[in-house]
């Protein structure tokens, strides 16, 4: 805010002692330069992590890594990639359907008291530990249904995990549709359903999409909801009622193999590297979409 000043500089007619002013001033300076160091303490490990994952993964990372099956101790991530995206597609479908519908009803239809409870529950749902959801999926979708480990069970469990993230953005996106839009539409004789589909949805859609992408970024990186629901398979997913492998599972299964023994650990690092890229990429998309939405609504408010 200003250049350093000497306690004896102009305006020196102080109340209180000069020594005290000096202490106050130095303490402020110390905080100004010291507190941002906490950012370094946090950011250094982040860069260290990205660096080491890249260093371990890149030497053996080739196109074949993405396109071949795991064979013995080596091979590629093809089955895991296909599995991850199949699971993610199922989960996104589930989460988007439930989350958007619930968000729309919470924002547009629900009486305030119900809406309040729904929002609290949405926040709590987002806070459930992933492994607890894994147990839920295992008990409800693997044991109780007698399906065994299946892609479908994994997808649904992951979907439940992702619901609150979609739900909360959808709720907010609908609530943020300017009320003039609603009044104008209804004044022109639109039925509520028409208003929702033709007016509110297009306005809210970019924000909802950013919520969906965010949920996907989070879902893609989860392990705990899948391990005991989707099972594992070294070949690409064969059907909804067959087990499947997935990228995070590759890391969990192979991380503690000695790095000298074949390339199991290398496979784990390649999966980690791929996940990092996908997750960062999805987050960039989230931001871009959100940015566009922000501009649009801002223009509308003006």
């Amino acid at each position: 805010m200003s250049l350093p000043s000497l306690p004896s500089a102009p305006l020196g007619d102080l109340r209180g002692s000069a020594a005290r002013w000096r202490r106050r001033h130095l303490l402020d300076r110390a905080m100004r330069w010291g507190l941002p160091l906490a950012l370094l303490v946090v950011l250094f490990p982040l860069f260290d992590m990205i660096y080491w994952i890249a260093v371990r993964a890149l030497p053996t990372f080739t196109w074949a890594t993405l396109t071949t099956d795991q064979v013995g101790l080596g091979g590629g991530l093809y089955a895991m990639i296909v599995g991850s995206f199949t699971l993610l597609a199922l989960a996104t479908g589930f989460a988007a359907a439930v989350g958007i519908a619930a968000g729309m009803y919470t924002a547009e239809y629900a009486p305030p008291s119900i809406a309040r409870w729904a929002r609290v529950a949405g926040n709590l749902l987002a806070g459930i530990p992933a492994i607890v959801l894994g147990y839920f999926g295992y008990y409800a979708l693997v044991l109780y249904t007698h399906w065994g480990y299946t892609t479908l069970a994994g997808g649904i469990t992951l979907g439940v995990f992702m619901v609150p993230f979609v739900y909360r953005t959808a709720d907010l996106a609908f609530a943020n549709v300017p009320s003039e839009q609603r009044e104008a539409a209804l004044a022109m004789g639109a039925r509520p359903g028409q208003y929702l589909v033709r007016v509110a949805l297009p306005i809210a859609l970019p924000a909802i999409l950013s919520g969906v992408f965010l949920a996907m970024a989070i879902g893609l990186g989860e392990t705990a909801p899948l391990l005991y629901t989707a099972g594992w398979s070294s070949t690409p997913v064969a059907g909804l009622f067959q087990p499947t492998s997935f990228l995070t599972g590759a890391i969990w299964n192979f991380y503690d193999y000695p790095s000298t023994e074949g390339s199991f650990q290398a496979l784990a690092f390649q999966a980690a590297f791929l996940l990092l890229i996908l997750v960062i990429g999805l987050n960039v998309v989230v931001q871009a979409v959100a940015e566009r939405y922000r501009r649009r609504t801002r223009g509308m408010m003006a």
């Binding site: 260290d48 994952i53 970024a217 890391i251 991380y255 790095s259 996940l275 990092l276």
Partner: peptide
């Protein structure tokens, strides 16, 4: 945004 397992493998191996 970084997945838990990625923290894990970095912690364990590096």
């Amino acid at each position: 945004g970084i997945p838990s397992v990625v923290y894990g493998i970095w912690g364990f191996v590096v």
